[in-house]
Design a protein around this nucleic acid. Structure first.
Lengths: 334, 334
DNA sequence: GAGCCAAATGTAACCGGTTACATCACACCG
DNA sequence: CGGTGTGATGTAACCGGTTACATTTGGCTC
């Protein structure tokens, strides 16, 4: 392995000069710089980054904790993270937690064992009960997408409440009065905000909330399929269903069609996320578009700001959403 | 930062003893072992893994080169990689190449700069023209899913030719004689094998190949949508379409329905991969199921075998496929 | 009791960089 | 001409572990 000493020898200078030539070229004279660079080339020298990082106490790696990468939305967020990280010279260590908190804790320890500089978590769960490293310094972390209420770190999220309200208002405007909701797992702040937005809209329209129209799911098509089955089995079934993810909406549609219902003729369905498949569903899904890649990029930018001690201003950001109206929602049957 | 010397001091032993207690507990006496472990606990000591790895010249990281993580199939493969790697104590450095070869080369250099021990690539592209490190040692690499013909490394793939033949035979058995194909990008070995399987089946059935029925796509729903449009605009349109991915099949179905065609009444559609959405499409997709997660696990196992010099036997593996018949294929209209 | 061996532990070199500090050459000034 | 400041380079300590080799200890044999 060619190391810095070989290069130094080859160039006839000291190792310090080689190091300086590569790290801060401006402090060495042009003549030596050329000599060193030529020697570097000749020797095919590449610095051993493990050594560099060990010495500089910076790994240039970010851990990403994601509940499941198999979810289309998260896949897009990760794409954004990946791209932004690469641009700034950071690597991405992926951790698919599958919701196991212990797995998350394991991966978060990558930071305390100096394998990564910081954590981006895409789920509201604080893997650090103490919220601090053993020596009291807070863990560099950014919380994106699903955000803790009192997150002790920068956050990026959607205004889920406003978005859910917007979508519900769209359904109300079409004339729906009984609107079902397939929400996410209980206890999730994201779901809670969206349910709040749904309530806001109903309340503003003077419609009483019917708890029996709210069904939990887990963001998979299967859970949407099952929840839709439950909803239409009600004595007074809804005329529209608001699903908290496009995946669940697609599952729901599959169930409704099998039950012989026309969409949106008999029942309207709306989703959330605007994944690729939303446009190709039959009928195409009305949904809330989220800037998934932007979440990733923003999260990386914020985390690196923290890491590089550029603590400027407001660490909580909201990204914009947009209502995309397609064919799966329409006026209720009279 | 608590380091090994503090622990040694606390336990009243030398640093070597501490190191040995943690790495090879069997060579230290039970009494000292207990002393050391207690000191480790007391000090809240965690080894600095950057130092460990630097010294031991093993990063315990694997780079994964993936064309696009936004593809559902790859997301599942990565899930498998992730899980298997974690089990064996390796981290996963993700590289979403978006098909840019230069990006791949950048990431592959993570290995030469000692940031990762090996590479798993999910696409047939050799980022190392020289196929070797500068000092002549071959790069630890495994090629999975889409595999180079003459891959100089272990590989895991599907028997794409047989799978495509199987699916085509299913369509032939239903009575189809004009079968369109929406394939992947040109030059891809994966696509070439699948086209070969399609040909095999047609040939065996005594049907002449009509090149105009083969349309290229890029595995996205959009490209499936567009290719389907092209196919049905032919003078003699096909009565069935075989898509090389479920994503494209879903796009194709969307296009066909918009054109007023019933599926499978007027035209059958089959996919490949058996992604989650395949079951929830309308109609549900007939497709070839691939063990996506197993690809990931297998690739990790093989790569670690290479890394740990356990070079045993046959380094090329095929995973099984399965024809899943659902509602999107049926007999042609008479 | 001397001699020997094995097991347990300590000492210190080493991995490959970075960087604080020392050194040196040289120009400029009063 | 001595003093001083500046820019370029060299020397060597250091990061936090691992491990080859040296040393110590104690049990066993003859």
């Amino acid at each position: 392995m060619t190391n810095i000493r070989k290069v130094a020898e080859l160039a006839g200078v000291s190792v310090a000069t080689v190091s300086r030539t590569l790290r801060s070229p401006d402090v060495v004279s042009p003549a030596t710089r050329d000599k060193v660079l030529q020697a570097v080339n000749e020797a095919g020298y590449k610095p051993n980054l493990m050594a560099v990082r060990f010495r500089s106490r910076r790994t240039h790696n970010l851990v990403v904790l994601v509940p499941t990468i198999a979810n289309t939305f998260f896949a897009r967020v990760i794409s954004g993270i990946q791209e932004a990280a690469q641009e700034r010279g950071y690597g991405v260590l992926l951790c698919n937690t599958n919701g196991h908190e212990e797995t998350e804790a394991t991966y978060a320890s990558l930071v305390t064992t100096r394998q990564a500089d910081g954590v981006i978590q895409l789920r509201a769960y604080n893997p650090f009960p103490e919220d601090a490293d053993s020596d009291g310094t807070p863990l560099p972390m950014v919380n994106a997408c699903e955000v803790l209420d009192d997150a002790p770190c920068p956050t990026v999220k959607l205004d889920n409440r406003a978005a859910a309200r917007l979508l519900t208002e769209h359904l109300l405007a079409l004339g729906h009065r009984r609107i079902g909701m397939i929400k996410g797992p209980r206890r999730s702040p994201l779901t809670r905000d969206r349910v709040a937005g749904y309530r806001d809209a109903l309340e503003a329209a003077g419609i009483a909330l019917d708890e029996s129209l709210i069904c939990p799911g887990d963001f998979t098509p299967r859970s949407g399929y099952e929840a839709a089955g439950t909803l239409i089995a009600r004595a007074e079934p809804p005329t529209a269903i608001f699903c908290e993810s496009d995946e669940m909406a697609i599952g729901a549609i599959s169930c409704l069609k099998q039950a012989g219902l026309a969409i949106p003729g008999d029942i309207s369905v709306a989703g959330f996320d605007d994944i690729d498949f939303a446009s190709y569903s039959d009928p195409p899904l009305t949904t809330i578009a989220q800037p998934a890649e932007a979440f990733g990029k923003q999260a990386v930018a914020m985390l690196i700001d923290v890491l590089e001690r550029r603590h400027q201003g407001e660490p909580h950001r909201m990204l914009p959403h947009e209502l995309v109206i397609r064919g799966s929602t329409g006026e209720p049957a009279t």
